[in-house]
């Protein structure tokens, strides 16, 4: 397949199919109640909270600054560890200081982007994974009554991953001098918002 044709194929074929499936009423679901409701709630939930959005986008921006392989390792680490946090939350395992952890994630990740800090891949993954647990614990189990947990989880993970992609896409301007400055300013904005969230959490 012509590689240049792949994005066009995605736009023309895959996207309409996905939209049609998402928009369909899913009336034939044999196992789950509220499958479509669960999926839509899962997709919307990460986007509806500014704390989650800031941290996800910051992870993408940081990945773009760090380049290969962090640019794709971080969007793998965050959703998986976030799901681990969500699983712990659903199982009733307590996690102290969740709100503070989430606010701290925006603050620290914003500062990393602002300072264009470049630690080793291992340290980066540990920092991102540490904060992901708080996000998963807080949001992973917030399911509306009657909606499907499976499709909610699917939507939640997809939306989180796409927020990383937004951050990476923004981060692509890093290759230009003015773009690099713009990303650092974006990091400062995220850090300031994180400080505000921290103030509210404390």
């Amino acid at each position: 397949m012509d590689r240049a044709a792949v994005p066009a194929l995605v736009l023309r074929v895959a996207l309409p199919v996905v939209l049609a499936v998402v928009a369909s009423p899913l009336g034939l679901s044999a196992h789950e109640g509220g499958a479509a409701e669960g999926l839509l709630n899962g997709l919307m939930h990460p986007v509806s909270g500014v704390d989650h959005v800031l941290a996800m986008v910051a992870v993408g921006l940081w990945g773009a600054q760090l380049g290969q392989p962090a640019v794709w390792v971080l969007p793998v680490v965050f959703p998986v560890v976030m799901a681990l946090g969500g699983m712990l939350g659903l199982m009733g395992v307590p996690l102290p200081g969740v709100d503070v952890g989430i606010a701290l994630s925006a603050l620290v990740l914003g500062l990393m982007v602002m300072g264009e800090v470049k630690p080793s891949l291992m340290v980066t993954a540990i920092v991102v994974g540490f904060f992901a647990i708080f996000h998963g614990h807080a949001h992973g189990g917030e399911l509306p009554e009657g909606a499907s947990g499976v499709t909610y989880s699917l939507g939640f993970v997809i939306a989180t991953g796409l927020l990383h992609a937004v951050g990476i896409a923004f981060g692509l301007v890093h290759r230009w001098p003015a773009g690099g400055t713009a990303i650092r300013v974006a990091g400062a904005v995220v850090a300031a918002a994180g400080a505000l969230l921290m103030w509210q959490a404390l």
Binding site: P79, L84, V157
Partner: peptide, 12 residues
């Protein structure tokens, strides 16, 4: 990640 959350829902 989705499967891990599914495990959580199953154990809930």
């Amino acid at each position: 990640a989705t499967a891990m959350l599914m495990l959580g829902w199953a154990a809930r």
